[in-house]
Design a protein around this nucleic acid. Sequence first.
DNA 1: ATAGCCGGGTGGTGA
DNA 2: TCACCACCCGGCTAT
Lengths: 223, 223
Amino acid sequence: MEESEFKPEIIVDFREAFSIKLKLSELGSRVVEKSITPADYVLSENCAVERKTLKDFLRSIYDGRLFEQVERLAKAYEKPILIVEGYTLQGLENVENPKIFWGALARVLAEWGVSVIFTPDERGTALFLYSLAEKLQKESERRVLAKRKPRVYTLREKQLLILQGLPNIGPERAAKLLERFGTLRRVFQASERELLSVEGFGKKIVRQIREILDTKYPGLEEI
Amino acid sequence: MEESEFKPEIIVDFREAFSIKLKLSELGSRVVEKSITPADYVLSENCAVERKTLKDFLRSIYDGRLFEQVERLAKAYEKPILIVEGYTLQGLENVENPKIFWGALARVLAEWGVSVIFTPDERGTALFLYSLAEKLQKESERRVLAKRKPRVYTLREKQLLILQGLPNIGPERAAKLLERFGTLRRVFQASERELLSVEGFGKKIVRQIREILDTKYPGLEEI
DNA sequence: ATAGCCGGGTGGTGA
DNA sequence: TCACCACCCGGCTAT
């Protein structure tokens, strides 16, 4: 018995198959049975798993249950995962309309950002759950740093960002302006003539810029 | 021929299997061949797909290529997806160490947030790619429109918005500046002294504004 | 020095 | 997942 071995804790809905709980236990995780909704397994504070057999998956596409459940799962957890169990060639061949099957998968992924994993059987499901729980919980410490970067802009980025507030100016034209004039202040001093000489700037855009820069505030905006 | 039918555009690395490109075409997408890295398929601005056969997937676990590639994919795209093709029971039975297989999957998901989809063959891959591209691109179309709709800025609002690009300038200070100086151009011409005389502007903020306006581009990036 | 206010970041929620 | 909003904290201004 190694003390150093890490034991992930997995919360399992009490209605889930016994064999999976057993397997998870054997693998070395602490299994906690609870009545949970909307998921079947909770692997970390923000990661939960819904498990469906292939057969149930297919049925639930048609009766709409799939999207309901997936929606609730996605709302409740940052990292929602769907496991489709019993994924075999045989099973797939029974799918009458592959287009609907793959379409549903795509929708789950695109619309709700749910990751989908296919396992052949309960053993595979358990192995995957265990591995994932282990990774998530081990690294939860490390993750503290890996969290959202506050995104601090450099001075250079700020300069570009301001110019992009002008109409029809994106990153590209913003860069052109700064390259040509050197500083923001000089860009804003530029005459219509000077602006026209910059690549990518024509009559129309220059006119708009001038309007914004030189219209008296508050502009007479009434209707 | 329905005009109303939506045609997703899929960018495919030119080295990918011809049969998949053909199938994608048949399904009704516009296939664009390019040399792309690090992905094999690009389905939208922020979604790209790496495709691997099961055999290659297994090999790449051991030689470390998998994690390298997945890392690059995840860094380059918000929604990275890995397709494992040729997923059959037979194939899986050949996996000597299931623990390593599922562990790799868990790692890809936990560490990089990459979704993994298993397809039985190229046909399945193509169907999935097509469905996903359709969903993503339809959705983004909606968003582009949805963005433009609610926000038709008046000239006055645009002027305020530009000033709010400056650090610590919100709606309030922006309005103060325009009231005081009349036009945007005059705001940007203002001296440090003039700025200080505006209510709500102190030493610190004026200093920052000056820095942004007068620093030569490209600013020397701090480390 | 300090009180009050502004800006912007964060977290929760709904779609 | 992403977009939006409401609230809160830290820091700057102004007295």
